[in-house]
């Protein structure tokens, strides 16, 4: 019996599943983010975009500076990006490399090999998240 497209997708290798899942999640997040910005601009409730932890306690959360880090990265200012949030910078670079090479592999029908996802990338990401968060407390004058 001929298998459906979804069944073939689910039986494919982990990189193919992650490639399509990541596209779905990134597009969904972008749509929610744009809708959120539109809602905030429409209602004037700019406080909704602020970090709740920072608003209530004055302490940065691990994700603080993430949006500024991504903006700096897309402008090409990698040092500012690392300064604001190294986790967001690392995650974005790894994802862009994974996405671009995997897309090229599909376009060139395997002539260019895409990056395979390795668990070590994930452990490094968690390490970077913890270290950059601790550094923001340890280094005096590290304000974002």
């Amino acid at each position: 019996m001929k298998k459906g497209r979804l069944e073939r997708f689910l039986e494919s290798d982990v990189d193919n599943i992650l490639y399509w899942v990541s596209i779905f999640v990134v597009v969904l997040t972008a749509i929610i983010y744009v809708a959120q910005i539109w809602f905030v601009n429409y209602t004037g409730r700019y406080d909704l975009l602020e970090c709740r932890l920072k608003t209530m306690t004055g302490i940065n959360c691990p994700g603080c500076g993430g949006t500024r880090a991504l903006k700096s990265l897309f402008k090409g200012d990698i040092f500012s990006s690392l300064y604001y949030n190294a986790f967001a910078t690392y995650g974005a670079i790894i994802y862009i490399l994974f996405f671009v090479t995997q897309t090229l592999e599909r376009i060139t029908k395997g002539k260019i090999k895409g990056i395979k996802f390795k668990m070590v990338y994930l452990w490094i990401a968690i390490g970077v998240l913890v270290i950059q968060y601790l550094l923001k407390f340890i280094i005096p004058g590290y304000k974002i």
Binding site: V21, F24, V25, V26, L28, T29, I32, Y33, Q36, L48, L49, C51, R52, L53, K54, C61, P62, G63, C64, G66, T67, A125, I126, L129
Partner: peptide
């Protein structure tokens, strides 16, 4: 990881579909 960040920041909600 994203949901822990998402408790405080808006962009962390990407953790929900994941």
């Amino acid at each position: 990881v994203l949901c822990v960040i998402g408790c405080f920041c808006c962009i962390g909600y990407a953790g929900v579909p994941l």
